[in-house]
Computed example of a mutant assay.
Amino acid sequence: MIKKCQNHGFFRGETCACGEAGTLMLNDEQTERLGRFISGALRHFPDDLGLAMNQHGWVGVDVLVDAMVTRYKWANKEKLFSIIESDEKGRYEIKGTKIRARYGHSVDVDLDYDENLLPELYYGASREEVDILLEKGIRSMRQRYVHLSTSAQKAKEVAKIHTEDPVLLVVNAQLAQEEGVTMLSATENIVLADEIPPQYLSVMQD
């Protein structure tokens, strides 16, 4: 659920970090339904909802709200903001009258983030995938970008969604970028790339 604290804004859970119970904005079911709608609208099918997404992934906040209210009569702009501002993963960003997803797109967008500054990045894979990745590199099959993690721990957490015993690959980001591979810093934990050629990959040793 999402609540609103008078002093600290929107939060998820029973109580704010300050101890205040807060005012209920969205119950668990509403949070899940609205979250799925926003993800679909900003990552996968904006055209189906009549959203004019620009090349960098931005759509108008008010246009998104109108589409949202058409689907869910109980929704409104404040509830949209409650989803965005309480999201611990930082999936979305709002600038002025525009909103976009930071990552996870299947639609063709050209995100304009700052270049990654970390010398090494990480990618978790199943044991069955590792040999193929080391031979052919990492390419995204369903999403617009390859998603890399900024820490080994985050890479393991992501990989464990799909496999119980992930193998971590180390990406030589510094060399890759020096040789022309573009890597974009989407969030504190996620870096995006079109693809990672195999020569920049190695298996992380225990």
Score class of each variant (00 low, 15 high):
residue 31 T to N: 13
residue 32 E to G: 07
residue 37 F to H: 10
residue 37 F to E: 11
residue 39 S to N: 07
residue 40 G to S: 08
residue 40 G to F: 04
residue 43 R to E: 11
residue 43 R to P: 04
residue 44 H to T: 03
residue 45 F to K: 10
residue 46 P to D: 04
residue 46 P to F: 01
residue 46 P to K: 00
residue 48 D to N: 10
residue 48 D to Y: 07
residue 49 L to S: 04
residue 49 L to V: 03
residue 49 L to T: 04
residue 50 G to D: 08
residue 52 A to I: 03
residue 52 A to S: 12
residue 52 A to V: 07
residue 56 H to C: 12
residue 56 H to Q: 14
residue 57 G to Q: 02
residue 59 V to C: 00
residue 60 G to K: 00
residue 61 V to W: 06
residue 61 V to P: 02
residue 67 A to Y: 08
residue 70 T to I: 01
residue 70 T to N: 12
residue 72 Y to F: 15
residue 73 K to E: 15
residue 73 K to H: 14
residue 75 A to M: 05
residue 75 A to T: 06
residue 76 N to D: 15
residue 77 K to M: 06
residue 77 K to S: 15
residue 78 E to Y: 11
residue 78 E to H: 13
residue 78 E to P: 06
residue 80 L to C: 12
residue 81 F to H: 15
residue 81 F to W: 09
residue 82 S to V: 05
residue 82 S to E: 15
residue 83 I to R: 12
residue 83 I to K: 14
residue 83 I to S: 02
residue 84 I to C: 04
residue 84 I to R: 05
residue 85 E to Y: 15
residue 87 D to C: 00
residue 87 D to M: 02
residue 88 E to G: 02
residue 89 K to C: 11
residue 90 G to Y: 11
residue 91 R to Y: 03
residue 94 I to Y: 10
residue 97 T to V: 08
residue 97 T to L: 05
residue 97 T to S: 15
residue 97 T to E: 15
residue 98 K to N: 15
residue 99 I to H: 09
residue 100 R to V: 00
residue 102 R to A: 04
residue 103 Y to D: 00
residue 103 Y to P: 05
residue 105 H to A: 02
residue 107 V to W: 03
residue 107 V to I: 09
residue 108 D to C: 03
residue 108 D to E: 10
residue 109 V to N: 03
residue 111 L to D: 09
residue 111 L to T: 10
residue 111 L to H: 09
residue 112 D to F: 00
residue 113 Y to R: 04
residue 113 Y to L: 03
residue 116 N to A: 11
residue 117 L to H: 13
residue 117 L to I: 11
residue 117 L to C: 11
residue 117 L to P: 09
residue 118 L to E: 14
residue 119 P to V: 02
residue 120 E to L: 07
residue 124 G to P: 07
residue 124 G to E: 07
residue 126 S to F: 10
residue 126 S to I: 09
residue 127 R to Q: 14
residue 129 E to K: 11
residue 130 V to F: 02
residue 130 V to D: 09
residue 130 V to A: 01
residue 130 V to H: 05
residue 131 D to G: 05
residue 132 I to M: 08
residue 132 I to V: 09
residue 132 I to D: 13
residue 134 L to W: 06
residue 134 L to T: 10
residue 135 E to C: 03
residue 135 E to D: 14
residue 136 K to E: 00
residue 138 I to R: 05
residue 139 R to Q: 12
residue 141 M to A: 12
residue 141 M to R: 13
residue 144 R to E: 06
residue 144 R to S: 07
residue 145 Y to M: 01
residue 145 Y to L: 02
residue 145 Y to G: 10
residue 146 V to Q: 05
residue 147 H to V: 07
residue 149 S to C: 07
residue 149 S to L: 01
residue 149 S to E: 03
residue 149 S to N: 04
residue 152 A to D: 04
residue 153 Q to P: 02
residue 154 K to A: 05
residue 155 A to G: 09
residue 155 A to W: 06
residue 156 K to I: 12
residue 156 K to Y: 04
residue 157 E to C: 01
residue 158 V to E: 14
residue 158 V to L: 06
residue 159 A to G: 06
residue 161 I to A: 08
residue 164 E to F: 00
